[in-house]
Write a protein that binds this DNA or RNA. Structure first.
Length: 103
DNA sequence: GGAATGACTCTTT
DNA sequence: TAAAGAGCCATTC
């Protein structure tokens, strides 16, 4: 069940992100015990259901921007949710120095 | 077992 | 922060 643990850890770490804060894929991967597996985080998030409880909207890339295509619904959804958490979204990104989660 | 893919990251310019 | 190149992890065919 090790391979399943990876997902569990990723979910746990993502759930640990407090509201109003965001984390990068690399951060989540490292905290989940998978340093360098940033792409895996994206892979897992891509497979999340639309009604998931996971705060995936708090996950962004190292550039502080949303990696989703701007013409996608998920992009608008993430932007909307972030705004709900008082996270200012400039264009397709945010201010990492202000909102990046530091455990 | 090898090649391709992906919501990426790092270092250098 | 932006651009270009190389690297890393796991899944899938």
């Amino acid at each position: 069940m090790d391979n399943n643990d990876r997902e569990i850890r990723l979910y746990t770490v993502i759930q640990g992100i407090p509201a109003g804060k965001v984390a990068t894929y690399g951060q989540i991967a490292s905290l989940a015990g998978l340093p360098g597996a940033a792409r895996l985080v994206g892979k897992v998030l891509s497979g999340l259901p639309a009604d998931t409880q996971l705060p995936w909207h708090r996950v962004i890339n190292a550039a502080g921007k949303i990696s989703l295509p701007q013409n996608s619904d998920s992009f608008a959804e993430q932007k909307k949710r972030l705004a709900e958490e008082k996270v200012l979204v400039c264009g397709n990104g945010i201010k990492l120095s202000e909102y990046q989660w530091r455990p």
